[in-house]
Nucleic acid binder design. Sequence first.
DNA 1: CGGTGTGAAGCCTTTCACAGCA
DNA 2: TGCTGTGAAAGGCTTCACACCG
Lengths: 224, 224
Amino acid sequence: MAERPIGDRRRIPEATVARLPLYYRALLETGEMGIATVSSERLAELAGVNAAKVRKDLSYLGSYGTRGVGYDAEYLLHQIARELGLSQDWPVAIVGAGNLGQALANYRGFGARGFRVVAVLDADPRKLGLEVAGLAVEAFADLDDIVVGRKVTIGIIATPGHAAQEVADALVAAGVGSILNFAPTLVAVPAEVSMRKVDLATELQILSFYQLRRALLDQPRAAR
Amino acid sequence: MAERPIGDRRRIPEATVARLPLYYRALLETGEMGIATVSSERLAELAGVNAAKVRKDLSYLGSYGTRGVGYDAEYLLHQIARELGLSQDWPVAIVGAGNLGQALANYRGFGARGFRVVAVLDADPRKLGLEVAGLAVEAFADLDDIVVGRKVTIGIIATPGHAAQEVADALVAAGVGSILNFAPTLVAVPAEVSMRKVDLATELQILSFYQLRRALLDQPRAAR
DNA sequence: CGGTGTGAAGCCTTTCACAGCA
DNA sequence: TGCTGTGAAAGGCTTCACACCG
């Protein structure tokens, strides 16, 4: 049951990394419910996956379960948090103070675990000083100073598409290591910067594809 | 170059479906630029993938390219739109009129292609009548009538986590076929309903994982 | 000649099934 | 006995490389 030092372990597959947050959240819930031990079966149910996947995923972190019993919920939670870097402090800057930027800034559960919004920026001078989630909106021109001064590691792009690449470039130049992009455009960043995209239009179009298929199954005539 | 009827073709892999929107967007851009023909190479660049993937993906739709030349941009755009069901009209209802719901309702490019927000609902009586994106916020209690009356096919959950399952159940009961869930909770729906999740906390935690790894590589001492 | 369309190879992910241990 | 941890099998996705054709 010894903790493996981070880094000194076999590589964790991307697919597993993407599921660790699910387990993390599920374990927070069991914690609130006062459950001390969870089986892979139970955890799978809470996270919406299957038990074999849970066991395989957790085995990449180390042998933190007990055969015949299950996993100690609190200890496992701690291990996953450590693996995800949630015990660290990650200052976040949001670029774009429109509806979306404000929604993101006000998102609860943000401050909760490591992620702290330390700045909301906008290029539009009319937005300057506007209060968003307890912060005054600052000038995009000051990005560099803000990132360096407040040790921002994660940048969130919540601007219109046409500004996204420029914002990304500025974030990278300022030294941000991770970017979460909500703008509906292709944004290129150097390989050493992680970027993830969230795109409403894409999601809707994917849903539309499957919706169409079902509609055609229901009434296959007129398959336009 | 004949159009294959939809349905009468080999199954399109999920991974490919998820990329079709990227090609769609890239082709819209080439259209604006007045480019008539694109190679898989060029399209790959615009979509941020590699050329082999583009060719493989497009081959699932049919043989719409010309050897030695490339793809007719407009025709290909049309085929992808047809495949994704973007020539259809998909009325959308947004549940939750908070910051996020408002941001989503105001999202441009929504009305653009098939997706039309026809209702914004909230359970909080104080939100009733508030104007969001040209629509008056309506009562969650009226969901059923609204879905049926306006033929809503896609529901968007933009509520706090604790309300998400209830909202999803109501959407499904009302007859919605697809759900896009922005609430940070596991939501279960019947197999015949498609659901996709967008979760800020998860995305940040994934970024945090890789950020931590990089930080450890830079200074491997004190590998806490 | 040049770029698509596609079998085949390689890689990654999921699932199975059971040995091994508390 | 019961549940984890994990090799092995199966399945899916990506990449390769080249036959084929406009």
